[in-house]
């Protein structure tokens, strides 16, 4: 592996000049658009003044963070983010597993393919499109409220009543991503050794017992790993979806960290916005690293994102 060192680093570079040149465009872009902004995070510790620019704006230590936690909006955004994420995890995590298990029992292949195709289509559309569609469907004159009224209730304000807004966000989130999530589980299901099912059938296990004693245990590692990894995403409550579906009436429950950061930025409060963003990025980093470690340990080094 390690060849004896001949000459200086420069000689090595010269020998691999072509490879380094191939790598160069990516490295320049990577540094410029990923690492330079990381340096820009120092703004979190500065009082940004447009006239002075980033470098000459005065340092203020942790003042931005103190303002952040003393404010009313940021702690609320933090709470809302955690609440929405946990609700997504509770309901949204199970949906693709159930969908995959049910699809797996279907023997009519065109039907199986058809349902799959329809359920993961929304994943490839933006939340601007999907949000726009749901604004129409869930409006006071929309078809969902026709049904509600036909059932003898008064129309529901799905998007302006706090509790209903959360329900709507969770359900439309499942609608958008369950099909996508099921693809991963279906691939894991397809990888299960058919001999296991035959052996179970010979032992007299029906399909329900086969599911309980063969399918679920075989699926367990995938489920555990995906669960741990999604735990690390707890500070991402789904900006695209929420931004395109919420309005000031539901800020109480629907304003999350990302929407808060954007609002501070629009008000040119760059120091505060950066501090909030940095807080989120650092917690996110810690969560991902520990989740990945846990996933690897549990699966004996088989799984994890790296």
């Amino acid at each position: 592996m390690t060849a004896p060192r001949s000459g200086s680093i420069l000689t090595t570079y010269r020998r691999h000049k072509e490879l380094l040149l191939l790598l160069l465009p990516s490295m320049v872009l990577l540094v410029l658009f990923n690492y330079v902004p990381m340096v820009g995070l120092v703004l979190a510790f500065k009082d940004y003044m447009a006239s002075l620019g980033m470098v000459r704006s005065p340092w203020v230590g942790l003042e931005n963070f103190q303002r952040l936690f003393a404010s009313e909006d940021f702690p609320r955004a933090l709470r809302n983010t955690a609440t929405i994420s946990l609700l997504r995890l509770t309901f949204g995590f199970v949906a693709p597993i159930v969908l995959a298990l049910m699809l797996n029992e279907v023997r009519v292949s065109w039907f199986k393919r058809g349902v799959q195709t329809l359920t993961y289509l929304p994943y490839f559309l933006s939340w601007v499109i999907l949000g726009g569609m749901f604004l129409m469907l869930l409006g006071s004159e929309g078809p969902v409220n026709w049904l509600v009224q036909a059932a003898g209730h008064s129309p529901v304000s799905f998007l302006s009543n706090g509790a209903w807004f959360i329900v709507t966000i969770i359900l439309t989130g499942i609608w958008q991503s369950a099909g996508y999530g099921a693809v991963i589980y279906l691939a894991a299901l397809a990888g299960i050794d058919p001999n296991l099912y035959e052996a179970a059938a010979i032992d007299g296990a029906g399909r329900w017992k086969q599911t309980r004693h063969v399918t679920l245990p075989c699926l367990a590692p995938t489920i555990v790993v995906l669960l741990i990894l999604s735990l690390s995403n707890i500070l991402n409550a789904g900006f695209d979806q929420i931004y395109n579906m919420f309005n000031p009436m539901v800020y109480d429950v629907g304003d999350i960290i990302d929407t808060y950061v954007l609002r501070r930025m629009v008000y040119q409060d760059f120091g505060l916005a950066t501090a909030a963003g940095l807080f989120k990025s650092v917690i996110g980093l810690l969560l991902v690293v520990s989740a990945n470690g846990a996933a690897r340990r549990l699966s004996g080094g088989e799984h994890g994102i790296w």
């Binding site: 680093i9 090595t12 570079y13 691999h16 380094l20 790598l23 490295m27 990577l30 410029l32 658009f33 990923n34 690492y35 330079v36 902004p37 990381m38 340096v39 820009g40 995070l41 703004l43 980033m54 950061v261 954007l262 930025m265 760059f270 916005a273 950066t274 963003g277 940095l278 989120k280 990025s281 996110g284 980093l285 991902v288 690293v289 994102i305 790296w306």
Partner: peptide, 26 residues
């Protein structure tokens, strides 16, 4: 040369970023 370090630099961008304000200013 430096393959390991370059790969780390690339992978690190998957889990950490500067966020919207520094990106906007850039």
């Amino acid at each position: 040369p430096h393959r390991g370090m370059v790969l780390f630099l690339i992978l690190f961008t998957m889990i950490f970023n500067g966020g919207i304000v520094p990106n906007y200013l850039l």
